[in-house]
Design a binder for these strands. Sequence first.
DNA 1: TAACAATACTTTCATTCTGTTTGAAACTAT
DNA 2: ATAGTTTCAAACAGAATGAAAGTATTGTTA
Lengths: 391, 391
Amino acid sequence: MRQNHQPYSTEILGQLNTIVILETIQANGSITRPEIIRKTGLSFSTVLRSTEKLIQSGLIVESGLEASTGGRRSTLLKLNDDDKVVIGIDMGGTKILGGLISLSGNILTKIKVEVDITSSQTSLDQLFEIIQQLIEESKQRNLRPIGIGVGVPGITDSKGGEIVYSPSLGWEKIYLKDMLDERFHLPVVVENDVNLMALGEYGYGVGRGVPNLVLLAFGTGIGSGIIIDGRLYRGSTFSAGEIGHMVPGQKFLSGKYEHTHGALEFMCSGTGIAGIANTQLREQNPDAVAITAKDVFESARKGEEWAARIVSDVVDYITISVANTIVLLDPEEIIFSGGVFESADLLLEPIKKRLDGLIPMHPEIVLSDLGPQAAIMGAAHQVLIEVAKNP
Amino acid sequence: MRQNHQPYSTEILGQLNTIVILETIQANGSITRPEIIRKTGLSFSTVLRSTEKLIQSGLIVESGLEASTGGRRSTLLKLNDDDKVVIGIDMGGTKILGGLISLSGNILTKIKVEVDITSSQTSLDQLFEIIQQLIEESKQRNLRPIGIGVGVPGITDSKGGEIVYSPSLGWEKIYLKDMLDERFHLPVVVENDVNLMALGEYGYGVGRGVPNLVLLAFGTGIGSGIIIDGRLYRGSTFSAGEIGHMVPGQKFLSGKYEHTHGALEFMCSGTGIAGIANTQLREQNPDAVAITAKDVFESARKGEEWAARIVSDVVDYITISVANTIVLLDPEEIIFSGGVFESADLLLEPIKKRLDGLIPMHPEIVLSDLGPQAAIMGAAHQVLIEVAKNP
DNA sequence: TAACAATACTTTCATTCTGTTTGAAACTAT
DNA sequence: ATAGTTTCAAACAGAATGAAAGTATTGTTA
């Protein structure tokens, strides 16, 4: 028999309520204690004590007084934007994006480098190097990093801080949290990159304060991040939301996608779209120059028939994947993200139109707010939460 | 701004741990306190106090002593099967199934009647009548009902106890919990029927103690029940798991399924399968007698080509829906259920075969244990949990 | 301008959890 | 018979919540 639930103690009780309060402050930007009471249902004592702790640990600050509502004026609380930052890293398949992010979600510095995937060690060294740079940068600016958050494409055991398997980085069984802990002596969060994107939108973006949302990322690869009740849903083997492997029709059943990136990814990812286009073009002209997904969309905009057909198929398959996601999870909001949605002008409205009348649920369907920065901002959010647990 | 989370108090802290303990007892049938400690990670005093309360309220009983492991023999604890029962009702589209279920999941009495859907009042009256009968039956047997659980096909707000919309019963905005509370003065649980089936398998069936599972029900209609971390996942509008509306391919995009039962349901439900078969048969012979899904499977078993084709399609579409479910939710276990799976001999292995190599996750895929009784047993489970919260 | 009402904050206290410690009881092995 | 192990029971401290009473600040009104 497996263990079903975690045991609950007064300690984690306090942590949970602290998070509730912190997220309320984050979602509202600036808020008074009485308002927190009304929104959370907690008692004044609890709110007072919790905010006191958060102030003491420097995560939030008092910021002036609210106008009176008939009596004594209440003090406004907001996230500390003066001297605390999070170090957020997005390990992409091709690029590493690092940044210093203030607690309220402002990116203060960015560093971007090409990944060197010669070996797992080279990319790890790059990661360490970037973190070191960001720490120094924060020192120069008189900022104190409260923690490090790293997003990795692949399967991550965020509890154990292990990268289980990341094919694009060539990482396998890398105990990244331990490594970073030891080296930098800061709280560390390790998480799947798309999961972090979802958290970023939840904390600072278009999903701010929406407790049930799904972010669908169509980029070089395809993935999704699922937030249920304000927490990441990771599944039983940390593989939830791997929608690249969705099967969007009968004809995909004969394919063996287990060890590739999946049927949907084959049709709708950036690489997939380019691949389909190039195959078609080469059929007509064996010496055709290879094009990218972006080129396909550009041609479609110019009204070229072959490209419009491909885009129409892409719209179809994305619609199928969104519909299936909505039907299964019934989220409040769907967020589209990733490089493919840089061509949202050709995608969003057609998708919405195809969904119209197709399924009975009608969640908000929106575009990502944070774009390529979503992951490092998600890192900021998650580190903030993690630090708030033990201030 | 919406409220994100519930506030946590010591009271619900106790409730949560009590549930953890109760489910551990339920999942193991018969277990000692030290064993509970090992499985849950809770302290001895917590387990002791909690079990004391559960014993006092009569939900569990001590049942003899375990063999010694070197010292004092420990007492075995199990669910009270002697004098406590749950009244479980499954309001089907055509039949009502009611039963007295002992806390350990034995069905002591069953009542089955055809639903009278003349009006919403007639079926409600039938429900009241059956509950009344079961209460009297329990009196005769010297049993005490601890609560009433009702499963309804449709959208139910289980927190408010409201039937939001049940087309097959013609119910809309029925505050069933309040009605039953007032009439019978017992704790009441109102829940979607497929959700209850999932809970039944989780508590007493093939999913016993598996905290992350999905039950897929292919019957007259199609639905699914999602259990995450041992709790039902209901979605933001109580519509999670409505997989009848899954879109299993490009050709379904032109259909307007919003106000019907959905694209997948059109292909794979009992009614859907029969409909497809009858349409085909009538094309060949306009006077063909209408057949049922069961007939189709029977013909396929006899090797009739036309039926085998239909069944193969059904296998395809079920495979697609399962694959998409797995990919999105990454559960530990998938449970197939419903009338269509009475022909599991033609379905299960082919489905598994088609899944082989298709996706990278490999959850257990099994058949329902409890069959048509799953829902009322789920009712028993949920009522048990609900009562344990406030013994 | 002073009294009053309303609201926000502070402090104190009782309650309800958890987990630890200590000791008694029950059992096995030597 | 003795020693050691394990379970069970009770007492206690720690942490968190929420309620209540008191203080501070602000706006209103006579």
